[in-house]
Design a protein around this nucleic acid. Structure first.
Lengths: 105, 105
DNA sequence: CACAAACGTAAGTTCATACTTACCGTAAGC
DNA sequence: GCTTACGGTAAGTATGAACTTACGTTTGTG
């Protein structure tokens, strides 16, 4: 839980990113998240399960409803993974400065 | 090209992450990347195509071979997207301090 | 105590995509 | 001019996963 691999895989799905971005605005219940979305509420539940397993969200029982909020752990894992690449990349740059070649993007 | 969505989707695949991580060690040809991997060389080619479309790698023709290297643009897109969440999350934290509830991870 | 609301889960379907083999173009070596 | 590396692309297949509807469970309400 909260490893970069699973977190990246979880955020790959567009619908799941929408769910996640809605939670960025503040904690919400499942129904509130699903409201106005194009997928059914059970679908949102399944996405929340995946996000939770990836350490990206956490939930709290609040009576009959269940409030989800963003868990910084998952974000942190991705950020750490990313930072590793930044560093490696900088070193790699330093190793081979001055090298041309038409980069075909 | 180089938007966070596509970059995240590209890095979701485990095999593609391996390819990407190999490139983090330094620029390599397609054959060199595929060497020792469990998938065929054409598979690696297809993954490189996806990574390139996501702005995560760039390639250079070097005689008969084609050398791939990491493109910082894709990483930057993800990082920017991530930083937005960091900020939003901090504000959201500040808004509702002091709130208990057993967080069931 | 019955009914409604909120949510998770099971089962099944459908569509995406990661892989394979086969083929084709291009650059280098004899 | 042939033949051998190198790598991209086409076509076809199969596994996974993102949905749907249906159902069960818990809480709150009359």
């Amino acid at each position: 839980m909260a490893n970069a691999n699973e977190a990246l895989a979880a955020l790959a799905d567009p619908t799941r990113r929408i769910v996640f971005e809605r939670l960025a605005a503040g904690p919400r219940s499942v129904g509130a998240i699903a409201e106005g979305m194009r997928v059914s509420r059970p679908a949102v539940s399944q996405h929340l399960k995946a996000l939770k397993s990836a350490g990206l969200v956490s939930d709290t029982a609040e009576g009959a409803r269940r409030v989800y909020r963003i868990d910084p752990a998952g974000l942190g894992a991705i950020r750490a993974w990313l930072d590793g690449f930044w560093r490696a990349q900088l070193e790699s740059f330093r190793d081979e400065v001055e090298k041309d070649g038409e980069s075909t993007r």
